[in-house]
Every structure is written in structure tokens, then in C-alpha cells.
Design a protein around this nucleic acid. Structure first.
Lengths: 235, 235
DNA sequence: AAGTCAATCAAACGATTGTTTTAATCCTAA
DNA sequence: TTAGGATTAAAACAATCGTTTGATTGACTT
């Protein structure tokens, strides 16, 4: 295919430099000139190899997102196979969701932690093309996991499960995207913050407990919430 | 102070228009020209009244963030007063954290939901001045709540508590920032997504369970996590 | 009624953005 | 070696950005 020997090198170096810079400054604030300068290539190379800045961003995300989500589905597949016809335990399902992210963060080839931060930030990006892209990337995977959780938690209404899955994705992406700004919350040294393995080992029990939490009472009001709500205090 | 009658009107209209546009497109992608056009004022008015785009953004955040965080601390104060010397129940502390956000979302005067989305997005923004601003805004409030939780959960190591508080803020801000892109996760109609009261009533039990979850075993490996990790599958 | 000062306006500033163009260069296949 | 397509290079493209300038307005004080 690509005839020249050094041809793919340029593409790869652009992608790598773009990943680091997108993660450091976000999509809008990262200029093509800074990317090409960091990659040591000509400015026009981006539009030549990728067509546009948007497509470059999609390529950066896809390169790591596709294998990670595929691995998630694979792990879930195997768990279901091993479970025979019975429901897979919540722990196993959740592990299938978290472990590929952990593996990615560990992978020394990649700027793993950097990418997960970039991904976490992309979740909150309002740019339509980013939102559309992520929706497409995640649609099938999320559907599979929702079905698996529904089997494992038969007492949980479907809508409640949807919400809890939403909360899980929230805590996960926010935690991964967390930079040093909110370091003060965790009182952690930067080295520890970057250690995603410990992070996920703490996150898993937290999420698991939330997933198995008793149903909220939505008909009548929760005592604590309304006790505070009816209060006159306006200061 | 402000002598002219219509003087404050311009400032306010700029702030309101900026809030809506920042929320819709993010900080970088929002131009001063679109803000002044939406507010019906001259382009130079922003620099005249606020000095710069950054200061305008800070003003937009402060206008609603300051009262909300103050209200959080006030609610916690009252709960501690009512508890006498004893520890406040986790439910009460969590309610003090969530209720002001709920109140803000309900307030018809404000574009409440819009602002919470803007805030959730700001958490993930890498711009240094934004991160610095949020750190300063949240530092004291977070410290107060961490101490309260530490009293309510004496068995929980301080570091573990820091992490769980981090997860809580993550699920909260991500959920509030959630736009329609991940609507498919929750299979919810847009109207329901915008209803933040139901959202928080579902979120509170989820977070409470996570907060009270048993301690993770960090010395030896969790069975489920490692069962998947040691697997050879690379596909 | 003259003067003062904050507020608004149109216009332009210099810098930077993503993208395109045109020519030079490289590597491979004939 | 030579023809030819793929890649790189330098330069300019039009558009847009945040900010500043200098003139003009209008309400209030003396």
C-alpha cells in the first residue's frame, strides 16, 4: 500500500504529537502549527494525510478507543460464555468495563494515562462532531453492557439501570480526566494521581456498591433531601 | 455607584448571553462577537465592562457558583449544629452537597440547568486560568465536607475518603454536564434529561451506597479484576 | 447653560487560525 | 536510467480572533 518506507512515519508522528497536545490543551486550543512543530513535520502534512483538523482528532481517538471498546466486549463475551446460560455476576461485568481502560493506561507503548485524560475531556466537549463521534463509538458497547447488567440485576427497573450506568460512566471519565486542578480534593501527590491501577481498584468497589444500592423512593420525598429543601434559609 | 440608569443593564445582558453561549459551545469556541450580538450591545462593551474574555468567564461562573457553594456550607453548618457534638449522618452531609445544586437547577430566574452544564464542562477544561479559578472556589468548601464525612465514617481511611469524594464530584459534574450525546446511554427523552430533580434523587442513593462501600483490598489483588487481567486474550 | 464623566459606538489593530497552492523532492517500477 | 506517482516544502490564502482606539452620546452636577 503505502509505497515509501518513511511515509507512515510522518502520519504516526503527527498522530502521536497531536494526542499529547490535544490532551494538554484541548481540541480548540491546540493549533495545527504546534502539532506539526512538535512532530517535526511540515504544516501542510496534516491536511495532506488527514484532510482536516477534525479528522485528525477522530483518528487520534479511534486509534486507542476502538481496540479498548472491542476488548471490553470480548471480555464480556467470555464471561457470558463461562456463565453458561446464567447471569454474569456484577463484579465480572464491571471488571470487563474497567479492565481494558486499566490495560490501556498501563501500556508503556502508548501515552496511556494521557489518552484516558483526553478521552475523559472529550466526553464533556460540546463540539457536535465530537459528540456524534463518541455516540457512534460507544453505542453498541453500552447496549451490550446494559443488557448484561439487566440480567445480573433483575430487580432493577430498566430506567434506573440506565441512570446508574450513566453515573458509572460519569465517575469513570471524570476520574480519568482529572488533572491536578482538583488534586486538592484527593490530597494526593501527582505521582499517585497518575497511577491508574490503584485508582481503578478503588473505583470498582465504589461503583459496585452504587450499582447494588437499594431503589430510591421517587413517589414520596426523601427525608434528608426535602428536610433541606423546605428550609427557609436564603442567607 | 454606577451613575447611569441603564449602565448595569448592559453588564447583566452580557453576562447572561455569555452564560448561554459558553454553555452551548465551550469557552474557546465562543467568540466575543457572538456574545455581544446576542446581548445586543457593542463589541467593545465586553472589554470595557470586564476587561477581557477570561474575566468575563470568571464573572459568569462566580455569579452562580459563589452563592451555591456558600449555601452548601450553610446547610452543613446547620446540620452540624443540630447534631450537637455528634457526627452528622452521611445522608445529611451528602444532601448539603447536592441540594444547592438542585436548587440552582430549579431556580426559574437563572438558566439553571444551562449553568450546571457549563460548570460540569469547566471541570474538564484544561485552560490553566479555569483550573486555577475552580481550585480556589472549591478549596474551602471541599475541605469542610471532607472533615464532616471523616467524622461520619470513622472507619474509612482519610485517603480512601479523598478518593470517594473525588468519585462523587465526578459523577455529579459529569451527570450535570451530560448533553444529549450520551442520551442513548440512558434511553431518556430530552425532557427527562433536563429534569434535574429526578436526576439528583436517583444520584443520591447511588453515591451514598458507594460512600459506605466496604474497603477495597489493595494488598492482594481483587479476584474479578485480576481474573480478567491475567487472561492471555489479546484478540 | 456650560462642563464633566461614564457609557456606547464604528472602525481598525496586529496576530493567529485552518486550509490551499505551487513547486521541489523522494522513492519505486519499468 | 528514466518516467511518474507519492510525499514534503515554503509561501500565501481568506477568515476570524481578542483587543484597542478615538470620536460621540447623554445624563448629571455646579
Amino acid at each position: 500500500m503505502t509505497t515509501a518506507r518513511s511515509a507512515p512515519a510522518t502520519r504516526e508522528r503527527i498522530c502521536g504529537a497531536a494526542e499529547a497536545l490535544f490532551m494538554a490543551h484541548g481540541y480548540e486550543a491546540t493549533t495545527l502549527r504546534s502539532i506539526t512543530a512538535a512532530a517535526g513535520v511540515n504544516l501542510a502534512a496534516v491536511n495532506y494525510h488527514y484532510g482536516s483538523k477534525e479528522e485528525l482528532f477522530r483518528a487520534v481517538l479511534t486509534r486507542r478507543l476502538d481496540p479498548m471498546n472491542q476488548r471490553r466486549v470480548d471480555l464480556l463475551d467470555r464471561a457470558e460464555r463461562e456463565a453458561g446460560g446464567r447471569a454474569v455476576a456484577c463484579e465480572r461485568i464491571l471488571a470487563a468495563l474497567l479492565v481494558p481502560a486499566l490495560e490501556l493506561a498501563r501500556d508503556p507503548r502508548t501515552g496511556g494515562n494521557d489518552f484516558l485524560r483526553l478521552l475523559g475531556r472529550a466526553y464533556a466537549d460540546p463540539a457536535p462532531f465530537i459528540r456524534r463521534f463518541l455516540s457512534e463509538q460507544y453505542a453498541t458497547m453500552i447496549a451490550r453492557f446494559k443488557s448484561a447488567f439487566a440480567l445480573a440485576l433483575p430487580h432493577l427497573p430498566r430506567k434506573e439501570l440506565s441512570w446508574r450506568l450513566h453515573f458509572i460512566m460519569g465517575a469513570l471519565s471524570y476520574t480519568l480526566a482529572g488533572t491536578d486542578a482538583l488534586k486538592l480534593i484527593a490530597e494526593l501527590k501527582p505521582r499517585e494521581t497518575a497511577n491508574d491501577e490503584v485508582l481503578l481498584r478503588r473505583l470498582a468497589p465504589f461503583l459496585l456498591a452504587g450499582l447494588k444500592a437499594p431503589l430510591p423512593d421517587l413517589s414520596e420525598v426523601t427525608a434528608e433531601l426535602d428536610g433541606a429543601l423546605v428550609a427557609p434559609a436564603r442567607r
